[in-house]
């Protein structure tokens, strides 16, 4: 691999943009195809499939073998609510390979003492989310029970096409939430992407058990997904 190709690849990864490295096994010729350039590539169909699944693959085209290395951003979990469930969920999610960011403007909750090794942002979601940049490779969970904090997060997550969007609260709370968000002009179809009550139905009772049910639901969304596509820039 030429160093400039590796540098470009690392730059795309750092910016959380998907790309595919195309390697001709005979001779080793390579090119990097950024997600926005996939449609114009001779291997557009194959490249799109690789990005859709996130799985690298060997292609056989006649006698030629071509290896496609899928580079999709690492999955990430963004939470609103530096609450008890988050204290259990954050370390579990990190072990499962997710980067975790917690947003809560209530500074008494959002402390690094309560959340070691996790990015904690004691700010309002509508201020800080544009800086974080939610994307289709991000899972979002709203855990505060406070519409002032959760609603802007959910709205941003829906707009960004996050691969998982969950919201804590009973069916009744969620029905009220749907009314509120629909009142902001969000379609019912879009709102149906919000998973609520949050988490797999395993009868979870404690904060840690609820965290397990949420994490399991996120892994399911990640691995069984009709995978997120990046919107063309």
């Amino acid at each position: 691999m030429e160093l400039p190709v590796l540098e470009a690849l690392n730059a795309e990864r750092a910016a959380r943009r998907a790309c595919v490295l195309v390697t001709e096994m005979d001779g080793g010729r390579q090119r990097l195809v950024r997600s926005v350039d996939v449609a114009a590539d001779p291997l557009a169909t194959e490249l799109a499939e690789v990005l859709r699944t996130g799985r690298s693959t060997m292609l056989s085209l006649g006698n030629a073998k071509i290896f496609l290395t899928a580079h999709v951003p690492a999955p990430r979990l963004v939470l609103t609510g530096a609450v008890h469930i988050s204290q259990a969920l954050a370390p579990m999610a990190r072990i499962a390979g997710l980067d975790v960011t917690i947003i809560d403007p209530r500074t008494a909750f959002a402390t690094s003492e309560r959340f070691p090794d996790v990015t904690v942002l004691p700010q309002w979601p509508d201020v800080v989310l544009p800086q974080i940049g939610l994307d289709p490779f991000t899972a979002f969970a709203a855990l505060t029970h406070d519409p002032k904090i959760d609603d802007p997060g959910l709205t941003a997550a829906l707009a960004a096409g996050c691969f998982y969007i969950g919201a804590l609260g009973s069916r009744r709370t969620h029905a009220t939430r749907l009314e509120r968000l629909a009142g902001q002009g969000i379609s019912r179809e879009t709102l149906s992407r919000i998973r609520a009550p949050i988490g797999l139905d395993i009868g979870a009772a404690t904060p840690a058990e609820i965290a397990v049910s949420i994490l399991a639901e996120i892994v399911g969304a990640l691995r069984q997904r009709n995978v997120p596509r990046e919107k063309a820039a």
Binding site: L9, N10, A74
Partner: peptide, 24 residues
């Protein structure tokens, strides 16, 4: 994978000979 690819770039930029192995 991020760490591995960044290390490959960093090592090369430091002037070391570097190879990258990939399960294909």
């Amino acid at each position: 994978e991020d760490d591995v690819l960044e290390a490959a770039e960093r090592w090369r930029c430091e002037g070391r000979g570097v190879a990258l192995a990939t399960v294909v």
